[in-house]
């Protein structure tokens, strides 16, 4: 792996996250916000893989988050499986759901994908509510979702440090997978499809296959972190399928920079803390976020990372061209 701007930024972020508890571990509220930031960071990064890199307007990502959460929640409450298995189950269940949604949706094009997935997303909530007999907990929600155990140690709400580092590990794994994916031939294929679908197809790329695989991977990552979330917050309900999370994740992606890995991670941290600071503003807070979203798109379409890329930092070597930023690992000469 060649060292480049993306790796340096990502490593920097992970190291900062890893050492932050040295300062804040006493402050459980800040710790909680940091954990939530990491959770959103994974969800936003996975979503950006589709929206930013793949140009696939899949609007059902929050649904996959919920599927992951409910999979582990229901299995660990009703079937008593271990939460560790639950993480895996969440990822697998969401990945499968991604394939199932993808099969009909991805045959369609562009805007139709957005509509179909949005419609699907809207249906998950009602399904959870009507599925109360299947053990979804219905409208009231599902609780208490048991915590992780490590030997005789039980994760608990008094001690956030173990949650924190577990979440960091999951974040690191997901970022690694994402980075590898973007720079693989699969990544090349979906970026090619995004740039020009007809040209990509005329050169032998199978649009459906490429889109389906990336949808499944993004869904699985989202499901994984959704499962973690379920154990962390103990109670989940269909309310997580509301607009808030949906819009917040999008704002994180836009703010950090779509298709500017690891922009959405930065976006997740900034927006989570900003949201918390603006809490006293009450409903003006979301109004402000709406305005921020529009302004960012109008004025800074490539987000924070787009801005960073324009700045010459000697440490990072010469300024990357767009193309080099996209696929630095693919050799430019043999």
């Amino acid at each position: 792996m060649k060292i480049n701007r993306e790796i340096l930024t990502t490593a920097g972020i992970l190291i900062i996250i890893a050492v932050t508890p040295l300062i804040f571990h006493e402050n459980s509220y800040t710790m909680h916000l940091l954990i939530m930031s990491m959770i959103w960071a994974v969800a936003a990064t996975a979503w950006d893989l589709l929206l930013g890199y793949g140009g696939i307007f899949n609007l059902a990502q929050v649904g996959f988050f919920a599927i992951g959460a409910y999979a582990t929640g229901m299995a660990s409450i009703h079937l008593g499986i271990s939460p560790w298995m639950g993480l895996l189950l969440g990822a697998v269940a969401s990945g499968l759901a991604g394939v199932l949604i993808g099969l009909p949706c991805l045959r369609l094009k562009g805007i139709y994908v957005a509509l179909m997935t949005l419609a699907f997303f809207e249906v998950i909530g009602p399904l959870i509510v009507v599925g109360i007999n299947l053990g979804t907990g219905g409208k009231a929600g599902l609780f208490p979702i048991p915590p992780f155990r490590l030997g005789s140690y039980v994760f608990n709400t008094d001690e956030l440090l173990p949650w924190y580092y577990l979440c960091l590990i999951l974040l690191a794994i997901c970022l690694f997978i994402t980075y590898k994916l973007i720079h693989s031939m699969l990544g090349l294929s979906f970026t090619a499809l995004r740039d020009s679908e007809p040209f990509a197809q005329s050169l032998g790329i199978n649009r459906f296959k490429s889109a389906l695989v990336v949808t499944a991977i993004a869904a699985a990552m989202t499901g994984l972190i959704g499962a973690f979330y379920a154990h962390y917050v103990v109670v989940i309900s269909p309310r997580m399928l509301g607009l808030d999370m949906f819009l917040f994740l999008l704002i994180m992606i836009i703010f950090g920079g779509a298709a500017r890995f690891p922009g959405p991670v930065i976006g997740a941290f900034v927006i989570t803390f900003l949201d918390d600071m603006l809490r006293p503003l009450d409903s003006y807070r979301l109004l402000a976020f709406g305005a921020l979203m529009v302004i960012m798109i109008m004025l800074l379409p490539n987000g924070l990372m787009g801005l960073v890329a324009k700045i010459n930092i000697p440490l990072f070597g010469k300024r990357d061209t767009e193309a080099e930023m996209l696929n630095p690992d693919i050799p430019k000469t043999y």
Binding site: L247, S283, Y284, R285, L286, G290, M293, I297
Partner: peptide, 13 residues
Amino acid sequence: LLAGLGVALFLDY
């Protein structure tokens, strides 16, 4: 698409 969501968020709140 995203700007539309932003406008919606703004108007609703």
